[in-house]
Design a protein around this nucleic acid. Structure first.
Lengths: 158, 158
DNA sequence: CCTCATAAGTTGAAGATTCAACGAGTGGAG
DNA sequence: CTCCACTCGTTGAATCTTCAACTTATGAGG
């Protein structure tokens, strides 16, 4: 990748910003997961699997769609769904219309678990993010996130 | 944790901000790790272990100090150091002054590896974050990060 | 001294994720 | 119709992380 010999190191201000940001990048997910794990025995991805299914028509999604939604590889999702299935929170069945697809379905028990968990999760998100920032900061955080996501997409597309 | 019956759900603007932010929170670390993994066979924590040691006097730190620096548990660090040690990038020895401590030391080979890797890593951080944001956005991102870190600390302290 | 409490670090087992290989279903080209 | 390429999803092995139990070194208190 190093195409030029000159490295553009970071200025001290940039470095300070990067340090804070990258520390936050490590700590916030850990803090969110801690709450979900404690209150519901779920990690971040598992929670979003249940939440995604609960918003979908018939509480049903294809595995591949779900994988995109939760930003995870299909293999990881497959293992994860096996564990959730063993706990009775979801079930899987082949799509009757096209046998190549597998439908993931939220069970009643899974839905109940999610409903039980959601308020505390939202409260945590508020406490650590939404209410920790004033309104203009939050708007600007959204802008930063979108800029960074765009840069990642550009980079992925080479 | 649910102390009140009333849940303060997110407004649509807050929800949109949270969605972008949390997607970025998942994708950016993956993108950074991908580059480190591809170019140097290291993950994010491993890179920061080497980087931390390289900045320390005598390229030496105690395991417990290193664990705080890279925001990781001691057990994880111990396993990770065993792997890095097997690759010859670091070594460990008991602190001669106080046998309870273990000193982690960056080898010459480890240092060379880091030096080889750093320019590409910095270039990636630039491309995905620093140069993806204008100056005021970056400053504001730093502020957001600090606010969120503070909220996490408050929360950890109950 | 001796005992005990404490903190540092290691270890092994269990749990989760990644990686590569595989199997199964479908639609299209010949 | 048959073969082929393609995508979807699963699986097992290897890797990494988490958890709990354990070892060891030190310093404090009797």
């Amino acid at each position: 990748m190093t195409t030029s010999d000159e490295v553009r190191w970071l200025s001290s201000g940039q470095l300070a910003a990067w340090r804070s940001f990258s520390l936050m990048l490590a700590r916030l997910p850990a803090a969110l997961e801690q709450q979900l794990q404690r209150d519901g025995g779920l990690n971040f991805v598992e929670y979003h699997v249940l939440a995604g299914l609960s918003d979908a028509p018939d509480r049903t999604m294809r595995m591949s769609g779900l994988a995109v939604l939760v930003n995870s590889e299909l293999s990881r999702l497959s293992h994860l769904m096996r564990r959730l299935e063993k706990r009775g929170l979801v079930r899987r069945e082949p799509d009757p219309c096209d046998g190549r697809f597998t439908n993931a379905i939220l069970t009643d028990e899974g839905h109940a678990h999610l409903v039980r968990l959601a308020p505390d999760h939202v409260a945590t998100v508020r406490k650590l993010v939404i209410d920790a920032l004033d309104e203009s900061r939050l708007a600007s955080l959204r802008g930063c996130s979108e800029d960074i996501l765009r840069a990642i997409d550009v980079c992925d597309a080479e």
